[in-house]
Design a binder for these strands. Structure first.
Lengths: 116, 116
DNA sequence: CAGCATCCACGAAGATACTG
DNA sequence: CAGTATCTTCGTGGATGCTG
């Protein structure tokens, strides 16, 4: 998808920051093991189809684990894996940067738009 | 774009990891001030239209600066801003994670696909 | 409940050609 | 050189309905 030619982190960006993966990972990291609907509700605006798609991909990539309980009604639980958890420092770094610099982005936008 | 309800870093993810911003920022961080075509060539697969779009947005967000030299032929130079440079630790963290864990992702995929 | 199947809509991105 | 203009393609995502 992205050009790796000039950017060594392109693969990991594709992996971790493609759409919905961050909220999913963050939620699972905060609340531990969750059922499908719980995850769906906590994220709020995602549709079940898309949530399923992303979870499958993340399961394949080893970022989350899926546990199926053959009951009636069926119960499926998702959990962040060790590999997924190892991204925590990166996320923390982003949160820090956010706290410190996101306001500057807003300022820059106002300046650019001339709506000082 | 992304749901912020469950994920505090969603805004910064949108800002920094939307398409092409990472390669652009990385390239400008590596090579300093660059002209439009130089940037285009280093990234390799981006089209001028898209490159222009992304650069405009990043300029608006305060991540890059644009300098126009009214000459013939015209010369425009792009440079990473202080704000953009402040992302370096985050990028470095990603590169580190990449070196350590990207192979595990490949393993997980092989396992999932059953192509052990 | 946890999904899959299907259809549809939209915007981002690519290809191409053209200007000051 | 540094873009802009236009057209087309494509993928993501939304909506809906249906199963074990």
């Amino acid at each position: 998808m992205e050009s790796e030619l000039a950017c060594p982190i392109a693969p990991v960006v594709d992996l971790v920051f493609s759409r919905w993966t961050t909220p999913i990972l963050w939620t699972l990291n905060e609340h531990g093991r969750l059922r499908f609907v719980e995850l769906e509700r906590r994220i709020g605006t995602i549709t079940p189809k898309v949530l399923t798609q992303r979870l499958r991909q993340m399961e394949r990539d080893g970022l989350v684990t899926r546990t199926y309980h053959p009951e009636v009604p069926p119960r499926v639980e998702y959990e962040i894996s060790e590999l997924g958890r190892s991204l925590a420092p990166v996320f923390h770094g982003l949160a820090e940067w956010s706290k410190r610099n996101l306001a500057k982005v807003d300022e820059a936008r106002s300046r650019y738009d001339g709506t000082n």
